[in-house]
Computed example of a mutant assay.
Amino acid sequence: MQRRFFLSALFSFSSLSVAGLAQAQSPMPLRVLTHASFDLPKDLLAQFEKEAAVTLQIVKAGDAGEMVNKLILTKSAPIADVAFGIDNTLLPRALSAGLVDPYTGPAAQRKAEVAMSGGVVPVDFGYVNLNIDKAWFAKAGLALPASLDDLAKPAYAKLLVVENPATSSPGQAFLFATIAGLGEEGAFTWWAKARAGGVKVVKGWSEAYYTEFTRNGGTRPIVVSYASSPAAEVFYSKEKITESPTANLFLKGGVFRQVEGVALVKGGNPAAREAAGRFIEFLRSAPVQQALQTSMWMFPVEAGATRVDVMKAHATEPAKFDNPTAGRMDANAKAWQQRWTQTVLK
């Protein structure tokens, strides 16, 4: 499972378009800026290049927050024509910074499972929540925490690893969920108790899940991850297991619904605008909406999209989630992160 790594990479896929009587021409480059977790099968990308007569230049800009920062810093000379991975925590910032040209094509008009505003087209959604190591709890004979109040007690806080909201998308989402679910003062009181109880903080998801989580040799059997993590565990076992060794724990104030979208970049190459629109339509196509479920481990937004079997069987969705309003997130994100740092790390 790959979500929110802090890496930068450039991938380029090539294809030839043929004009007239087999006279080869160089395909137009289409610059796509994404977060580091963007991942689709190469054959789908190659097919898009062929049909759109473009060469994809996919630049991975690290975490989604880093990606938006890069768009802001390069606003006067945009480095992309289209951007994927602007999520609902970052959308108000992207819109207020004037980074987006609204897209109004068919994908923007079709009914979707979730919505985004400002001409950004939703592509996928998922949930940030707690995952637990089922075998560890069974062996310890310890009941699961029934609330965030339970989780802040030393018996459980010392078992929990979370991501820093200043450096991690799921870390930020989990912080937002605690604020929406407990209220701002209640949330920071909870974080202070969790710190006193022994919660561990790491930079990002990969360190939390692959180093600190007991499933992977760590010492913490409770981790902030995704509702799709149990499905990924089964999928990557290559049929060695049929039941996930991890489970979702949905607690009030501990579940955030994340929505990711794709947008036209304001000031992008006008000659590439049509191809950029085709890329947006491509991300909402049936093959991509199916593939992203086991490559990016998110749920498809296209109404009526088929869920793949491993997601249907092992990626449970919560009945409720706690999201602050978009305006509140945008207005307070920086202050909340600073207060969290003072509360948890100082």
Score class of each variant (00 low, 15 high):
Ala146Phe: 01
Lys139Ile: 00
Ser147His: 11
Ala135Cys: 00
Ala146Gly: 15
Asp133Gly: 11
Leu144Phe: 08
Gln172Ala: 15
Glu163Lys: 03
Ala140Thr: 00
Ser169His: 06
Val162Asn: 00
Thr178Pro: 00
Ala173Phe: 07
Phe176Gly: 03
Ile179Val: 15
Asp133Thr: 04
Ala157Leu: 13
Val162Arg: 00
Glu163Ala: 14
Leu148Cys: 10
Lys134Leu: 13
Lys139Gly: 03
Phe137Ala: 05
Pro145Trp: 09
Ala180Cys: 08
Lys153Trp: 02
Asp150Glu: 13
Lys139Gln: 13
Ala143Trp: 05
Ala143His: 09
Asp149Thr: 15
Leu151Gly: 05
Phe176Cys: 14
Leu148Asn: 12
Asp133Lys: 05
Ala177Asn: 11
Ala177Ile: 14
Pro145Phe: 07
Leu159Cys: 12
Ala157Pro: 03
Ala157Glu: 07
Ala140Trp: 01
Ala143Pro: 12
Asp149Lys: 15
Trp136Thr: 07
Glu163His: 05
Ala143Cys: 08
Phe174Asn: 01
Leu151Asn: 13
Leu142Pro: 02
Asp150Ile: 11
Glu163Ile: 07
Thr167Lys: 13
Lys153Leu: 13
Ala157Met: 04
Leu159Phe: 07
Ala146Cys: 08
Ala180Val: 12
Ala143Asn: 10
Ala152Thr: 14
Gln172Thr: 11
Ala166Arg: 12
Leu151Gln: 09
Leu148Pro: 05
Thr178Leu: 08
Leu160Tyr: 06
Asp149Leu: 14
Asp149Pro: 05
Leu159Asn: 10
